[in-house]
Design a protein around this nucleic acid. Structure first.
Length: 799
DNA sequence: TCCTTTCCCATTTTT
DNA sequence: TGGGAAAGGA
């Protein structure tokens, strides 16, 4: 076979896709098939490198689509990758595994559901479902919700799973933790009984599947010669373990891993992301190729200089500095407003300037804030000014109550044992089944050890009859929709369940009715896009048998000649031998659970974009306003107590800054309404960490509180000395003060007990400065540590 | 069974 | 201050 020649030709033909790459990008794209870490700075063309890498591997004939595994964090990123890839080269993407961690885990579990000890049509619990499952369990087992808040329990369970711990693995030190583990155990049993898995379970169960089944693990290790992982800095412990399992460490026969990430953009530690995975990866995989992508194609240099200077204040970094060929551009403008209201006003004014004066498109302007609550003032101002805007965040399509109700009916068609869904709709629309009836049913089901649906006969009287009628209704619907198209099934369900009728009769039900119609559309486009039409591309029922029997399905053998055609029918394509498929309905329900849909209103309109800094990650805009740059808000007060938290806040600020292409505005307000109270805030320390030369202060720059913290402990390592406190006007202090040795005239000494009008009695922890600049750090029992300007604060010495 | 009242809480969030 | 959830009354 003239394979070698083919490959050369292919390599030559591949050149066009390499055109325009800078040297680092080109090096990354054309690395040999060995483990590599790509440190990709913001705006450095990371996605382009990833997709071009895959395209290059394919075009040079080094790999067939079936040998590629590409993992992302969001569905959006996965889609983007696939879109760009198919634009780059004509390609049968079918054999490729591109998706989110959870999507790929789902695929694995569907393909090997027997080995994974799951029912074929297992359903996926989203966060809401999981919480209601826990609450239900609490009632059944008389768990005290006061002592073990359900939300906290949910967090606990998710945390255990992320650490790869089953109930038996969790360390127990006291009665409380023992009880928590018991509840975890009960929760696991409930899920197993009902045939449902939560998000963490998808990861953990597929990890265990690979760990415990040599044949399966070897199959995928042989198959995936190239594994690419995006946003590696966001992986948690379990995800990294999963990667190690599906690839294998060096010498274990797996393919090459290309991890792409940016430690400076790691902003999800609070939900389990471990930046440390990057260093672990380098060590454990003996990574020889590390490439930094530092050329930025997005921003002018004033913006980049600011980002670089800011992030240089972090200590735990792999080290990276962005550069650009674009000129300095506009200075970064800093504005101080008297209040949050005025801040919003100013932002809106400035924004209209950009649109009117500079002809900037509204959708190219973004307003970023640290917490969602800040959007309100902005929205009010925008609304009053008649500026179209769009807020990211909030409920997503598949999370809306009416859509969840509809999905619950559909899930019951697939899996009558799904008690979460059962309870959600057993009396919705209302059909005379009250709390007592349900309690009776739950007792009966528990006594018999069956699902709720199977226990209806044991409930006596009218209640029992009603319940039986409900179950019968679902059963009938299941029979009648047998073999129908997804669209027909859903339309019929909407009618027979009474959902549509119910919302039509409701006063404000129009939107909900519309959403239910939209559900039909979503299903329709799912069918066409995912190929659930005539060709019935679906998941094989069990790939395990196929992989042990058919050598062709073993994927690429490293020693075998490369083939030009797809090696095997990968999971995800119908198994032609058995013809078994997952039903379109089951597949659609999975889709609904794994992809909650859009969470932005009125997409497509030319509107100003409002979002949290977190939500802005990965996006870019011509102009960016970062608002609320105040101590306690950004950095957030809850992050001030520890060093790591502060560094994450700084990375967050770094992400925010690097969203801007041309113009960047930083603003803060002296006062802000929070929880119905006016708070006096001091401008954020982050503003002090930016290079003077890149900034333009639109309002006179006054002393900053943050700079004191820095001066105190000699630079950016400052640990904030104040606690969770609101900051009061008399706490305002000015720029770094030269400590003087002269005897203070205020008479406040370290260790003294003092009295403050607002905070009461407290102990002086430290005193610095003199004259008007003198300030004392006081520990108030009820308000925590505070720095007070002695010229302003009226402190009387008690002792 | 539904609607009102009360209470509690209050970063960031994808799957 | 305001939203969401749970408890209590018609």
């Amino acid at each position: 076979m003239p394979f070698v020649e083919d490959a050369r030709d292919a390599r030559a033909a591949a050149m066009p896709i390499l055109a325009g790459l800078n040297p680092e990008q080109l090096a990354a794209v054309t690395l040999p098939p060995e483990h590599a870490l790509i440190l990709a700075g913001a705006g450095s063309g990371k996605t382009r490198v990833l997709t071009t890498r895959i395209a290059w591997l394919l075009q040079t004939g080094q790999i067939s689509p079936g040998g590629i595994l590409a993992v992302t964090f969001t569905n959006k990123a996965a889609k983007e990758m696939l879109t760009r890839l198919t634009a780059m080269l004509p390609l049968n993407a079918r054999g490729m595994w591109i998706g989110t961690f959870h999507g790929l885990c789902n695929r694995l579990l569907r393909a090997h559901y027997k080995l994974a000890n799951l029912p074929q049509a297992f359903q996926i619990l989203d966060t809401q479902d999981q919480l209601s499952a826990i609450k239900r369990l609490y009632k059944q087992h008389n768990v005290d919700d006061e002592r073990f808040p359900a939300k906290q329990m949910q967090w606990f369970i998710a945390g255990c799973k992320e650490d790869g711990e089953r109930p038996g693995d969790v360390a127990v030190h006291d009665a409380d933790s023992r009880r928590k583990v018991e509840i975890y155990q009960l929760y696991e049993e409930q899920c197993q009984r009902e045939g449902v898995v939560d998000f963490g379970e998808l990861m953990l169960r597929s990890y265990e599947l690979l760990r415990d089944n040599d044949a399966v693990r070897d199959h995928y290790r042989r198959r995936f010669r190239h594994v690419l992982i995006d946003e590696f800095q966001d992986t948690n412990r379990l995800q990294y373990a999963w990667v190690k399992m599906i690839v294998g460490l060096p010498g274990e026969g797996g393919g090459a891993v290309m991890a792409v990430g940016d430690d400076d953009q790691s902003i999800y530690a609070f939900r389990g992301a471990r930046v440390g995975n990057m260093a672990d990866f380098v060590r454990e995989f003996h990574v020889q190729h590390q490439i930094k992508l530092e050329q930025n194609y997005r921003s002018h240099s004033n913006i980049l200089d600011s980002a670089n200077a800011l992030i240089a204040h972090n200590t735990k970094r792999l080290g990276k500095s962005l550069r650009t060929d674009q000129g300095a551009g506009e200075p970064v403008r800093v504005y101080e407003a008297p209040s949050d209201f005025a801040e919003a006003e100013w932002v809106v004014d400035e924004m209209r300037q950009l649109v009117k004066g500079e002809g900037m498109a509204r959708k190219e302007i973004a307003v970023l804030y640290r917490s969602n609550a800040q959007s309100r003032v902005l929205e009010t101002q925008l609304f009053n000014a008649g500026v179209p805007y769009r807020v990211y965040g909030g409920l997503r399509f598949f999370e809306r109550a009416e859509v969840k109700h509809a999905l619950a009916y559909l899930r019951l068609l697939e899996n009558p044992r799904d008690d979460t869904s059962f309870l959600r709709v057993v009396n919705f629309p209302p059909r005379g089944i009250g709390a007592r009836s349900i309690e009776q049913l739950q007792d009966a089901a528990r006594a018999a050890g069956t699902a709720l649906a199977d226990a209806v006969a044991s409930v006596p009287g009218k209640a029992g009859a009603n319940l039986a009628a409900f179950v019968a209704r679902i059963d009938v619907l299941r029979e009648q929709t047998e073999g129908q198209t997804l669209r027909e099934i859903i339309e019929r369900m909407l009618d027979d369940s009474g959902l549509l009728e119910h919302y039509r009769a409701e006063r404000d039900g129009a939107d909900r009715v519309e959403n239910l119609q939209e559900l039909v559309n979503a299903a329709e486009s799912f069918v066409t896009q995912e190929g659930f039409g005539r060709d019935a591309v679906a998941l094989p029922v069990d790939e395990t048998a196929a992989l042990t029997q058919s050598p062709a399905s073993q994927g690429l053998d490293p020693n075998a000649p490369l083939l030009n055609e797809p090696i095997a029918a990968p999971p995800g394509v119908v198994d032609e031998d058995t013809g078994e498929t997952l039903s379109p309905l089951a597949a659609f329900l999975t889709h609904a659970a794994l992809e909650a849909g859009d969470n932005q209103a009125q997409a497509g309109q030319d509107a100003v974009q409002l979002m949290t800094v977190h939500a802005s990650k990965g996006l870019e805009f011509d102009a960016v306003f970062i608002t609320g740059l105040e101590e306690g808000l950004f950095p957030h007060e809850n992050s001030l107590s520890d060093f790591e938290g502060l560094e994450e806040e700084r990375r967050l600020m770094y992400v925010a800054i690097t969203r801007a292409r041309q113009r960047l505005y930083l603003c803060h307000a002296q006062t802000r309404l929070l929880h119905g109270q006016t708070r006096y805030n001091v401008r954020s320390r982050f503003l002090e960490e930016l290079p003077e030369g890149a900034l333009k202060w639109l309002t006179p720059r006054q002393g900053g509180f943050a700079s004191i913290a820095a001066a105190q402990s000699g630079g950016h390592r400052a640990r904030p000395a104040w606690g969770n406190s609101a900051i009061y006007p008399d706490m305002v202090a000015s720029a770094p003060l030269p400590p003087r040795k002269a005897e203070p005239e205020h008479g406040i000494r370290t260790g003294a007990k003092v009295f403050h009008n607002k905070f009461g009695e407290g102990q002086v922890m430290a005193v610095e400065g003199s004259g008007d600049d003198a300030r004392a750090q006081v520990n108030f029992p009820r308000h925590g540590l505070k720095w007070l300007a002695l010229a302003v604060a009226k402190l009387t010495v008690v002792e």
